[in-house]
Nucleic acid binder design. Structure first.
Lengths: 172, 172
DNA sequence: TTATGACCTTTCAATAGCGACATGTATGCT
DNA sequence: AGCATACATGTCGCTATTGAAAGGTCATAA
């Protein structure tokens, strides 16, 4: 399971609460892997029970910060080294493109225009992030590398979606 | 559930057996949504029970070809029109990039070089498909539009992965 | 004739993931 | 004081997904 290792990786970087982690999934990370808070809290409990993570501080409102233990850190590293990325892909928006011929051309075009807008928005978000970005420790550099992928891929998406919308133009 | 509608969409295009559908998921479709044969056969059974798909022919070796019924076709269209794409994203290979700082720079670089190679291969596959492509009916055009997305995004991936590998160069 | 490999379907147990429900706390505004 | 909103965690039932096991057919070539 990847969620497990995603969490462990973040907890190896710095202490985080379930809330923090949920927010990180909603923002940047959500574009490569989604997870709901119910999944995250459940998993944190399991990681703690297995000795891979531990609570390092508690705060008002019941907030608990977790950190990866040595065993937890070792487990992510082992996972990175010894396992192949599973080929599981999930992108419902693109899946729909295969089925667009079932709609009227105008509807298909509208869908693609919405896609273009959505990706343009995402791109702008990444650009803001990149502009504001600083920090040069290893986790931040890894983030920067991932962000660059986001920038390039969103650009490709936006251009594609505009081109695709034109393909479904009534005139065509 | 998207799998359901993905299958229905393909069955609206032409009759397919579970085997065919599995192959289509392994090839082109797998890059936006993965599904194992066990899931596909189970789902075909359900679609048939609900009257959304029907067996239109049987062949040697137990092969059965399914086609979407009118109700099935209407259901995909309804889904396309009335529901928003779920935001679920899943891309384990990119998720790992966020965690690459946990490895030695050399290991990280090697990972990214493998990614570059994998995506270059995928790109070549799409290019071959595109070169061989012909047919101008609506489903084929939709496929062509999706393929164009694949081409553009894989190109972006390859270039990114090469750039990213250089970031983790020992010299850096 | 027999082995090999490609074709093809089915079932099942176990795990992962989703969405709704439940519960409560601190902050800031009116 | 009262209220809204953001913060914060946790549980539960249902559905989706995976991976493995099992069983069978046809074509081809050694």
């Amino acid at each position: 399971m990847s969620l497990r290792h995603a969490l462990l990786g973040m907890l190896a970087e710095a202490p985080h609460s379930g809330w923090d982690l949920t927010k990180r999934f909603e923002r940047s990370l959500g574009n490569v892997w989604t997870a709901s808070h119910s999944q995250i809290y459940t998993q944190l409990g399991k990681l703690e029970a297995e000795g891979l993570a531990e609570v390092v501080a508690t705060f008002p409102r019941g907030r608990k910060d977790y950190r990866a233990t040595e065993a937890g850190r070792a487990e992510v590293v082992r996972w990175l080294r010894e396992t192949e990325p599973s080929g599981t892909q999930r992108n419902e928006a693109m899946l729909r493109v295969f089925l667009l011929w079932l709609l009227e051309p105008g509807e298909a075009r509208a869908y693609l225009e919405r896609e273009a807008a959505t990706h343009a928005e995402q791109l702008a978000f990444y650009e803001d992030l990149a502009a504001a970005w600083q920090g040069d420790d290893p986790p931040q550099r890894a983030f920067r590398v991932a962000l660059e992928a986001g920038l390039r891929i969103e650009r490709a998406y936006v251009e594609w979606a505009r081109w695709a919308a034109a393909q479904y133009d009534d005139a065509s």
